[in-house]
Design a protein around this nucleic acid. Sequence first.
DNA 1: CCATACGCTACACTTTCTGTAGCAATCGGC
DNA 2: GCCGATTGCTACAGAAAGTGTAGCGTATGG
Lengths: 121, 121
Amino acid sequence: MSLPIPGTQVRGSKTGKPIMALFDLLGRTWCLGIIWQLSLDNATFRQLQARCEDISPTLLNTRLKELFQLDLVQKTPLGYGLTPHGKALALLIRPMAPWARQWADNIQRLKDNSPEDDSHA
Amino acid sequence: MSLPIPGTQVRGSKTGKPIMALFDLLGRTWCLGIIWQLSLDNATFRQLQARCEDISPTLLNTRLKELFQLDLVQKTPLGYGLTPHGKALALLIRPMAPWARQWADNIQRLKDNSPEDDSHA
DNA sequence: CCATACGCTACACTTTCTGTAGCAATCGGC
DNA sequence: GCCGATTGCTACAGAAAGTGTAGCGTATGG
């Protein structure tokens, strides 16, 4: 997969608008999860692999390379970590956690109120 | 692909932590782009297809169904639009645009300072 | 009615992701 | 120095997800 470099053609934008390049990047499997985990704590390759429950090493390495090339992840003596840019992005992602909890509650409530599941006997 | 329903197993979390369910969802091709476009303006199926430059109708329909089932997108007389939940999520996504612009500038600067490209003759 | 536009599906093809195995390199411990 | 354990990472085959084009059935307007 080619890197979604702002300014070049990316998914959603032939001219590579930065927001579209970002969406292309974040829209790749595991990308958000990796940034999230690294925002919690630096990690070595195998630690990260373990924290991301089921990620394959192949893909983890691919993503790390991409994030590295786009200056969001760096290697440190303590393993992989976010760059200043990466940390700034993580700050934007963080508020999604409380939102997600509310959302989850609401979906649960919707399901409870419309019990159109298998048990309609 | 199965819906990333919070509380069920999703990518990154066997117990389905809401934030992981969200990452699973947003990590799917075009998902962020669709939410972004709908946050700008409601749109019919074909309008949305056109605005998302190269999305295939197959996938657009798949994503819309997913977003609909997860209560982020609804059908209106004016075409597809975001639900209140969807709008709240869009508000969290919006600040990514200015961040992305800065990021793009910085990547450009990095490239300019290390001209390790083909023209090293 | 006939042309047009719509929402959407079918389906064959391509690209991406997974999962397991395992290699080369490093790190103690002895 | 040598040995087992761990690390970062790659290979590769199979599975899954996404693409792209054609086109169906319905609604709308002339």
